[in-house]
């Protein structure tokens, strides 16, 4: 069992959790993830490790409530435990040095790019972070990123905070008027967002890395469920990724495969929510 030693809401439906997982913490590098299972009969889901402390033996996860599994996970409080955590998994990010790196996080994707900021900074990069959310309250980790990045540029769809528009719009502006050319873009977020970033940087031939989030089961290269088409080849996100050259990724196939269990996911979530409601009404 893996004990939760800290848990706090960052924004509506987004929770930051610190878990005791000493072996994972000891080896984990930026870009890697864990597979976890909340309880018996639970499913295995991948989550990026946002931060880790090898001395304290802890890892930090940032979880957005999407389906039943993430809802169950976020319902856990400090002192409670989750059944299984395995990792670190996936290849660490291949970090560039001595250049201008732009990190782009869409929604909870910010948790994926966040650990890169410190690492890129220590490799003498200028680091610009563009982070987006629907409204101000969905912008996460702005302060933490500010401590590592040279500049943090928040964007909201409604303009309630920072730039009004998408992170891709903001990147477009940056490319157009940047005093310093951009060497590498690292992006994580919803598939349409990553696709938009890839389409935007392609004509400029800016090296663009995306962290993909396909459905996984074992996470160790055994099942092949996370396969993605990259440059016409089948790659396994769990052992070959999760980060790939954005200009080579078949985003349409990825987006399609992510919808495979939409009906079941909805059913599971509804059953869980009604069970929770029933328990609340009993108390």
């Amino acid at each position: 069992m893996f004990t939760i030693i800290r848990a706090e809401w960052l924004s509506p439906g987004v929770k930051r959790m610190r878990l005791r997982a000493p072996l994972v913490a000891r080896h984990r590098q930026p870009g890697q993830f864990v597979i976890l299972r909340v309880q018996e009969t639970g499913e295995r889901i991948p989550l990026t490790v946002a931060d880790s402390d090898a001395d304290a033996g802890t890892i930090d996860l940032i979880v957005k409530v999407v389906g039943k599994t993430t809802a169950m996970l976020c319902a856990k409080a400090r002192g409670e435990a989750i059944a299984d955590v395995a990792g670190p998994l996936g290849r660490p990010t291949e970090l560039s040095s001595d250049g201008h790196a732009v990190l782009i996080g869409g929604g909870v994707g910010t948790a994926v790019i966040y650990p890169l900021a410190h690492a890129l900074r220590s490799l003498r990069n200028r680091v610009t972070a563009i982070i987006g959310g629907r409204t101000r309250e969905f912008i996460v980790l702005e302060e933490e990123l500010g401590a590592a990045a040279d500049e943090v540029l928040p964007c909201t769809d409604d303009g309630s905070y920072g730039f009004q528009g998408t992170v891709a719009d903001r990147l477009s502006n940056l490319i157009a008027c940047a005093e310093e050319p951009i060497d590498t873009v690292y992006a994580a977020g919803p598939v349409p967002m990553m696709r938009a970033i890839a389409d935007l940087t392609r004509p400029y031939a800016i090296r663009t890395i995306v962290s993909l989030n396909p459905i996984m089961v074992d996470g160790t290269g055994m099942c092949g469920g996370c396969r993605v088409n990259v440059g016409g080849e089948t790659k396994y996100a769990c052992v070959d990724g999760p980060e790939f050259d954005a200009h080579e990724v078949d985003f349409a196939a990825l987006a399609n495969r992510l919808t495979a269990y939409r009906v079941q996911e909805q059913l599971a979530r509804e059953r869980y929510d009604s069970k929770c409601a029933l328990e609340v009404s009993r108390h």
Binding site: T41, E43, Y261, E265, A268
Partner: peptide
Amino acid sequence: MEAYRFPDADTP
């Protein structure tokens, strides 16, 4: 993952 028991097990 016991998907044959879905939705009593979570994996579809």
